[in-house]
Amino acid sequence: MSEIILGSKMVQLIIALILVSTFLILGSTRLYSCVRAFGIQSFLLACVAGIVAYSTGKNDIYIVAVLTLVIKAAVIPYIFIYIIREIKVKREIELYVNVSPSLIIGGVLVVISYYLIRSISIISELSSFALSASMSLVSIGLFVMISRKKAIMQMLGILIMENGLFLGAISLTYGMPLLVELGIFFDVLIGVLIMGILIFRINKTFETIDTDMLKTLIG
């Protein structure tokens, strides 16, 4: 069953596009483009959920798809843009790792994820394609967090990881039980709001949101 849906050309194409959107984030030095790429990624994710919902005929997954669309593709990008405007961040992102090495590392991470998932034999009966894409998103999200200086990019990294897990859950089990999915959406939304508050606070106390400054507590 899962082979039929997730193996379909349509879904494979969308998952490939999701990976492309992730590379857009890696390849960009402008905050707005990163946020836009994240919005596109979430939109595509909602499409995957929609297709899965359509082919399984489960109402629960429709709800999840709509929530993804509203919260991750609209509300969260809007919060990002609000933060960027309010604190007048410099629109350029400073990087610890430059764009071209970032892209190469991203590519390497995708390859590693692909082989990792392939080698875990049990999952091979499933759509290993979607699962390796999900692994790639998680690892690239982590990489974004450690290679970008702005606090806002760390927040974005976490959300990319979360999107990756969402893809993983959809491809493994058609998502979690509805109650759990709702809880996760709630947490993600509240989490983004609170990280937003923290970023405002960091900006107020340190007059920058570069995480370079956050290095006094050691030992």
């Binding site: 606090a151 609170i194 106390t205 340190f206 400054m213 956050l214 006094t216």
Partner: peptide, 13 residues
């Protein structure tokens, strides 16, 4: 609103 508390909270989060 000490600097160190904000830093700790961000790392924690």
């Amino acid at each position: 609103s000490r600097k160190s508390s904000v830093e700790a909270a961000w790392k924690y989060m």
